[in-house]
Write a protein that binds this DNA or RNA. Structure first.
Lengths: 144, 144
DNA sequence: GGTGAAAGCTAGCCGGC
DNA sequence: GCCGGCTAGCTTTCACC
């Protein structure tokens, strides 16, 4: 992984759909070698995939909540069940296990307050190991 | 925005570099009309851009911290200065203004604990309006 | 929404350094 | 081992129906 690979990564991170010929020109390579580098970065897992960035409001995900969650039990089974259940929901935009307390940080993206209340009540509070949740509502997403 | 647009969005969100011919086939359209829809979604801001998803560890961003920040002042100038300064750093992966307390949620991604300490000391604690910061370290990113 | 044609891109192969 | 040139086949794009 050299300077050129870094340059390729920086460009693809912001312009994920750039044509290979244009990418090659930006990093001072011809298209052949440039494509080989991109494919190697993909194969080695440095590039994990490509995604369109969607306006959350346009698809009913304009209401975002930061959620702190504490569990009551930490046996492997409880932890796995909690993580898998939560990660499977489309409403869960982000899920991190933390050191210390709270045990988890979750970012939820739903349409509105009502949808949030429903999601919390029906899909989070009902998970067996969940002990405590604490919500903080986002006013504005400044950077993502 | 109809059912077909939704289908296009769902696919591009997960396969941002899919070829237009393949996308068209998946949503039962021919390439021409499919491309027009994608271009309209881009022009109206529903699709904001395309990004490669990079393995954080491979580019020195494997150490993630969730930061809560409270400000001392809320005049427009202080708020703007804080938000612009923070958003400009590459280390800031996410920045949300919240309702209530804390005032901000920030996700920081750096190489290691030492880099984090340096970033906090040199670039966050030094911002004039910052009153209090509280860090929570992530053990594992389960979903992003 | 579909069609067709021009322009442009991708991805493999091979030779050179 | 990595780059560049070349080429065949495919994709994108746009005007027109």
């Amino acid at each position: 992984m050299d300077r050129t690979d870094r340059a390729i990564i920086d460009i693809l991170e912001h312009e994920g759909r750039i044509a290979n010929v244009d990418l090659a020109e930006r990093v001072n390579l011809t298209p052949g070698p440039c494509l080989r580098r991109v494919q190697r970065l993909e194969a080695t897992g440095v590039i994990r995939g490509y995604h369109a960035e969607i306006d959350p409001g346009a698809v009913g995900r304009g209401f975002e909540v930061m959620l702190d969650v504490d569990l009551a039990r930490f046996d492997r089974e409880s932890v796995d069940a909690f993580e898998q259940a939560l990660a499977a929901f489309e409403e869960v935009a982000e899920l991190h296990r933390l050191f210390g307390s709270p045990d988890y940080f979750v970012r939820i993206a739903v349409a509105d307050l009502e949808a949030y209340e429903r999601f919390l009540r029906d899909h989070v509070q009902t998970l067996p190991a969940v002990q405590r949740v604490s919500s903080r509502f986002t006013m504005k997403a400044i950077k993502r």
